[in-house]
Design a binder for these strands. Structure first.
Length: 625
DNA sequence: CTAGGGTTAG
């Protein structure tokens, strides 16, 4: 009976139709049924059926159930020995990927004939879970126990673990190992090293390794494009992309994803459109990963409509794509739409995870949907089994803080089961600034400074809090402290794209060729809006100077200059899109509202936090930001 | 019929 089943299931002719692991994932019931059937077959027959078991184990991997793993394990122990080693390796991989380290270690220790694959199953398992400690310790045991020396693939696994774990010393040590073993020209290994050095910020080392490679394949080129991207050097990323094309290689998924990510740092819409074109010519327009990156990028560049279009063309959006769309709504302050989208996709079978909830909560907070946010925070754990992480707490503190529920936010932080990070305290501080709560603001700022004493923004914010309360001497003490630590304020920049160029302005900027015209336009606009009731909001100015001087200072903010330039050069039917590296201030926010009404223009300002769409005197953020 | 992670997406 079993023979028949076995032959039918695994027979060579029918093999292409044999269920793949993914199938089991989709049909958990099928999966468990299959387990039961197998166990029964085994009960009546001791026929060794390794291939069948290995298929089963593949299914196990996607079931993420340790108990199923143990059931199969028990059967294996009963009916087979480990002479082959094959099943044992598979089971080790299973246990490790499920996070059941003791099971994996125990089985591994019991296996009599460990080969490279056995060792590597363990090493790569730990590496994949980001468990650098176990990964390294297994690696060193392996190194001392295996007389044969080390295998290239094992090294690659450990190198990857160091890359994601930011373990510099270990990483350099592994590079030495590789050199010692004469593997410094093996493409796969070198690519892993390039990636690692890129993650460490050692662009130079990555560069040297790449150019020493005799055979530069597509992955090597992609790795270098990624290195430039991750280290914020867009020019070189494009440069390497072009060199890659000259060398005759066709860009693939990874190339395009990295290249698109470079554009995130650049406020250049036109460039994205050009890359979008390349994606089409390379026949990559149906690729989900690329489409997701593109969707995300358009959102970040202020073009939610374009995001929408890209999303609509994804034939079968996966969880990542759906979350990217949700993030788009959140980023643009479309709370209601985000909730509707979330509910709809969950109804259609999406299983939300911690990232999904981060964006959903973020959407609630940016739209002031306090009750909804609280509710989702609750059911996230209760219904979906997603335990709140730091990001979720930041969102919740932000949500409560925006509404002025500062004590609730403070209580939430105090009751956190995990140590709050800068995101959490930063959210509280932001709220304290808006609602002028000095005591809590001080506490938040002090915690922030303790967490990162080298970040100038924390001092600036503390100083801001004191200034807005009129406590000038405290404010100047903080600024003096900054000076002794040689910390300087990050200057604010505003960018605007026009005529194939990016125009960048700082505060009180007069360096633009058309500077005179821009400042005349700015004066004109400010006068116009003051005539219809605009009043300057100078609370955020931290210096102890006369009101008039303050107004003069605030009127020279970089976003106002960029806005004046936008009004000067762009056609009336186009939105004015401005990018700012810091948060927009209250006064500039008000200015944009008035200008959108008086000049009948759509103004989109992307600051370091989010987007503001101004039209008809209103902002999409409903003054929550 | 089967085996071990080079790059990239929320």
């Amino acid at each position: 009976m079993f023979r028949l089943f076995h032959a039918k299931f695994m027979g060579p002719k029918l093999l292409p139709h044999a269920p793949k692991p993914q199938t089991f994932q989709l049909f958990p019931k099928c999966c468990s049924l299959l387990f039961e059937t197998t166990i029964q077959f085994h009960a009546v027959s001791s026929y060794p059926c390794e291939p069948f078991l290995s298929t089963l184990i593949l299914a196990l991997k996607s079931s993420s159930s340790v108990s199923y793993c143990r059931v199969v394990h028990a059967r294996v122990v009963k009916s087979l020995d480990f002479r082959d080693g094959f099943i044992g390796d598979q089971l080790v991989t299973c246990y490790v990927s499920m996070g059941s380290t003791p099971d994996a270690q125990k089985l591994f220790d019991e296996m009599p004939h460990k080969d490279f694959v056995s060792w590597n199953s363990l090493v790569s398992g730990f590496s994949k879970r980001g468990d650098l400690g176990n990964c390294m310790s297994v690696f060193s045991t392996m190194k001392s126990e295996m007389a044969l020396g080390l295998n290239e693939l094992t090294l690659i696994s450990v190198i990857s673990a160091c890359a994601s774990g930011k373990a510099r010393d270990e990483g350099c040590y592994l590079h030495c190992c590789a050199v010692k073993l004469g593997m410094e020209l093996e493409v796969k290994l070198v690519n892993a090293l390039i990636n690692m050095y890129g993650k460490f910020g050692c662009v130079e080392s990555a560069f040297k390794l790449f150019w020493a490679l005799a055979e530069k394949n597509i992955v090597a080129w992609n790795s270098m494009v990624a290195v430039w991207t991750q280290n914020g050097i867009p020019d070189e990323a494009f440069n390497y992309f072009n060199m890659m094309r000259v060398s005759g290689l066709l860009p693939d998924e990874a190339t395009m994803v990295s290249l698109l990510q470079v554009c995130e740092k650049l406020p250049v819409g036109r460039l994205v459109e050009a890359i979008h074109g390349v994606i089409f010519t390379c026949g990559l327009d149906e690729n989900v990963a690329i489409a997701t990156t593109l969707l995300n990028l358009y959102s970040k560049l202020g073009r939610l409509n374009s995001s929408h279009k890209v999303f609509a063309e994804i034939r079968k959006p996966d969880k990542v794509a759906l979350t990217a769309m949700l993030a788009g709504y959140a980023m643009h302050g479309r709370g209601r739409e985000a909730i509707e989208f979330f509910e709809r996709t969950v109804r259609d079978g999406m299983e939300p995870d911690h990232v999904t909830f981060t964006h959903l909560l973020c959407a609630c907070s940016h739209s002031g949907l306090v009750e909804e946010g609280k509710c989702y925070f609750q059911i996230m754990a209760d219904v979906y089994g997603v335990q709140p992480r730091l990001d979720h707490y930041s969102c919740m503190v932000d949500l409560l803080g925006r509404r002025g529920l500062l004590n609730d936010a403070h209580k939430l932080i105090k009751n956190m089961p995990i140590e709050p990070n800068s995101g959490v305290w930063g959210a509280l501080l932001g709220a304290c600034r808006v609602y002028h709560n000095i005591d809590l603001g001080k506490e938040a700022a002090e915690n922030l400074i303790a967490l990162d004493p080298s970040d100038p923004r924390n001092y600036i914010m503390l100083s801001n809090i004191y200034s807005s309360a009129g406590l000038w001497s405290d404010a100047s003490k903080v600024r003096a402290l900054m000076k002794t630590k040689v910390l300087t304020k990050i200057p604010g920049y505003s960018f605007i794209e026009h005529g194939n160029k990016i125009h960048c302005f700082v505060v009180d900027d007069c360096s633009h060729p058309d500077s005179d015209k821009i400042h005349m336009k700015l004066d004109e606009v400010m006068r116009k809006i003051q005539e219809v009731g605009f009043v300057s909001e100078t609370k955020s100015i931290l210096h102890d100077v006369d009101e008039e001087v303050k107004i003069d200072m605030i009127n020279k903010h970089s976003e106002k200059i960029a806005l004046a330039y936008g009004l000067l050069v762009s056609s009336a039917d186009m939105p004015i899109i401005i990018t700012k590296n810091l948060r927009i201030c209250c006064d500039c926010h008000n200015t944009a509202k008035f200008v959108s009404l008086l000049e009948k223009r759509t103004i989109i300002i992307r600051d370091s936090k989010r987007f503001h769409h101004f039209s008809d005197g209103l902002c999409s953020c409903s003054d929550y930001w």
